[in-house]
């Protein structure tokens, strides 16, 4: 368990009859329902909107698991930095999609293709 109670944990302890794990569990379950519903019932939504929901919900779910179930919120910061470090490489790999996929360069958002102007992307 985390070594120190964080802000959210303290607030839950003081204001709710349940602990942070129960709150986190309920939030994760609700978010998963939203995630599945967004895709299943979201035929009328644009692809961008579905993506925004999936990424947004994914980030919140990931934070909930890492911060509270894995106790990163209360543990010394060195654990957080250790876990975060490889994400730098993952980010580079994801960024590399834009640099290496000829079909993807023209279709991907601008943040993913910062050097697109320097590459021959025209047929």
């Amino acid at each position: 368990m985390g070594e120190h109670a964080t802000g959210i944990e303290k607030w839950v302890e003081e204001n709710l009859p349940v602990d942070i794990y129960m709150v986190n569990f309920i939030v994760l379950m609700v978010l998963t329902v939203i995630e599945v519903a967004a895709v299943f019932f979201g035929e009328s939504m644009s692809l961008g909107m579905v993506w925004a929901i999936l990424i947004g919900v994914g980030i919140v779910k990931g934070y909930g698991i890492a911060a509270f179930f894995m106790h990163l919120a209360g543990d010394p910061r060195s654990y957080l930095w250790s876990f975060a470090f490889p994400f730098l490489f993952v980010t580079l790999m994801l960024w590399g999609i834009g640099l290496s996929n000829p079909g993807g360069i023209t279709g991907l958002p601008a943040w993913c293709t910062p050097f697109a102007g320097g590459y021959a992307t025209t047929p």
């Binding site: 994400f87 590399g96 999609i97």
Partner: peptide, 12 residues
């Protein structure tokens, strides 16, 4: 991360 980026590379 490798699996995920490989997938997105192909998927796009």
């Amino acid at each position: 991360g490798s699996f995920f980026s490989s997938y997105l590379r192909m998927r796009t």
